[in-house]
Simulated assay, not measured.
Amino acid sequence: MNKLVMRFLTSVEGKYFTLAVDDIKVDEKGVPTVTSAQTNALMDLVIAKDIFASASGKLTGKKDAKIVVTDTNEVEIA
């Protein structure tokens, strides 16, 4: 499973808001294809639309973002 994890600055000093998007786009080999430009545009839109309520206050800027890739392998149990 691949997901995009974005952290936003908030109006409360030192506090962040995290938003994760599961099942992001991948190529035929399963490699994530989400670009930096797409991520920045999404984060800018989330901030501009002000649609998420956060216990840490209003979203005021971008902190960071990363793509998390989780690989699962079955283990044989005897």
Rank of each mutant, 00 (worst) to 15 (best):
I67Y: 01
T60I: 12
Q38V: 04
L45V: 04
T72V: 11
D64G: 01
V12S: 11
T10M: 09
D27W: 09
F17S: 06
N40Q: 14
K58G: 05
V31P: 01
D64M: 09
D23Y: 08
E74H: 04
S11I: 09
E13R: 11
S56E: 13
A48T: 05
L45I: 02
T10N: 08
K49R: 11
V46T: 07
I24C: 13
F17E: 13
K66M: 11
K62D: 02
S36T: 10
D22T: 10
N73K: 10
E13P: 08
T39P: 06
V68E: 12
A48F: 01
T33W: 12
G57A: 11
S11M: 08
F52K: 05
D22E: 15
V46A: 00
V34P: 11
A37F: 02
V68H: 04
L42C: 05
D22R: 14
G30P: 05
Q38F: 08
L19D: 03
V68T: 06
F52T: 01
T72Q: 05
I24Y: 13
D71W: 00
L42R: 06
D50K: 11
S54K: 06
K29P: 00
G61L: 05
I47K: 02
S56F: 15
K58E: 15
I47Y: 04
Q38T: 06
D71C: 02
L59W: 07
K63R: 12
T18Q: 14
V31Q: 10
K25A: 14
V26G: 06
S54A: 13
A55W: 07
V34M: 14
F52S: 04
V69L: 00
I47S: 02
V34I: 15
I67D: 01
E74T: 03
T10Q: 09
T33E: 11
E13M: 06
D22Y: 12
F52G: 03
V26D: 06
T33F: 11
G61D: 03
V12C: 03
A48L: 04
S11E: 14
T60R: 00
L45F: 08
L19I: 08
D44L: 00
L45Y: 11
D27E: 04
P32E: 06
T35G: 08
D50V: 02
